[in-house]
């Protein structure tokens, strides 16, 4: 299979490649949003401890 026919996907390129691109974006979004959730939770927890320490002092 040469490069041209590979990218053409037998005439179905406009259906095959958007599917792979969309699922790739879903995989990337899942990782990004999960790391984001952890980051935000860490900040929130640190802020809660800082406020508790401030109230105690």
């Amino acid at each position: 299979m040469n490069s041209g026919s590979f990218w053409a996907m037998g005439g179905y390129a406009r259906f095959v490649w958007p599917c792979f691109a969309f699922v790739g974006a879903v995989l990337a979004w899942n990782l990004w949003s999960a790391w984001n959730l952890v980051g935000a939770a860490r900040v929130r927890a640190a802020r809660a401890f800082a406020m508790a320490a401030h109230d105690n002092s």
């Binding site: 990782l31 999960a34 959730l37």
Partner: peptide, 14 residues
Amino acid sequence: CIRLRGEVLNRERQ
């Protein structure tokens, strides 16, 4: 696993 860590931190932050 990643999301679970975030959920646990949110729920147990005290």
